[in-house]
Amino acid sequence: MELFGLAASMIALFVGFGFMVGVLFGFFGMGGSFLVTPALMIMGFETTTAVGSGMAFVFGTAVIATLKHRDLGQVDYKLGGLMIVGTTAGIEVGRIGLYFLQDRGLAGLIVGVTYVVLLGGVGLFVTRNALRNDEEESIEEQHDPNGEIDPDAIPDIAKTIQSYTIPPMMTIGGGIKVSLWMVLGVAFATGLLSGFLGVGGGFIRMPAMFYLIGVPVPIAVGTDLFEIVFSGGLGSFLYGLEGAVDLSIVVPLLAGSALGARIGSTATSLVEESEIKIYFGLMLLGGSVAVALRQLGNAYGIGELKLVSFALIMLSALAVGSAVIYSALKAIREDTRTADVSPAD
């Protein structure tokens, strides 16, 4: 049976995969198209279609997740507005770069290698920090819903960057002062990756906002999603102009991710991110290995490697998405037990 030109089994796969990605996206504010785009490439879609459709998917998911985070008061509109300016310029430069490489037949290889390096690098960084935080148990302050941040919770590198007072300076969520140029620089760099790789850029921007600028994690997540609404919308439009957005891919993915994003966003108020962070880091590393295997499969014509790569991406998303849901369910049940043993006033 076919719907919108796709087999029903393929639509079911897209809806299920979208759901897993939505849980991750809603919870971490990242992890959307960096999973979707490589998966589409592995499934045999053309690079520009995978990138364009991945970006349209991220745009839709970001709209839904931002509305949810706005309800939780986790969006810094001033910071988000500035991020949009820097990211927009970066996306256009990245997109031009991708088409330049596509014309020379190099897009698939270079996008693949960039994914391997980025996913691997960020994955190692997140995993290392998660392990360190496990030892120090000092990250709880980052989940203050009011956005107030303990100076001890600001990473050292962020403190160093905040010490450069290149005017104009601005105050962001959590009462942190930072140079406008630093904000624009981070936004441009992540926009460049966004346009080049067809990702929302969250898996770079969200850690960058926390580690480089010092924005509290909940506000970094909400503001990042708000920013992705605009950058994703613009990116989708630009790729749409080239005919690289396939609605038969985007619609079922979005249907699944909308439900997942709602559950993931709600889970942020129930689960400590530090509990999940290590899984997320490992998932990024899994994604890196998956893309590397696909590149090897392409280079040496080994079809099995592509299949292993696809399974690895799917299983990584499934494992971390399940960890988020399991932790949320556990938190609900532990709340009940705490309430049961608390003495009545």
Binding site: G60, V63, K68, A258
Partner: peptide, 22 residues
């Protein structure tokens, strides 16, 4: 250009409907 804008509009519409629906 109209086609690209329609695509973006369709995704936005689906997102809005899904947000309200869910």
């Amino acid at each position: 250009m109209l086609e690209a804008a329609t695509l973006v509009g369709a995704v936005l519409l689906e997102a809005g409907v899904l947000y309200l629906g869910y």
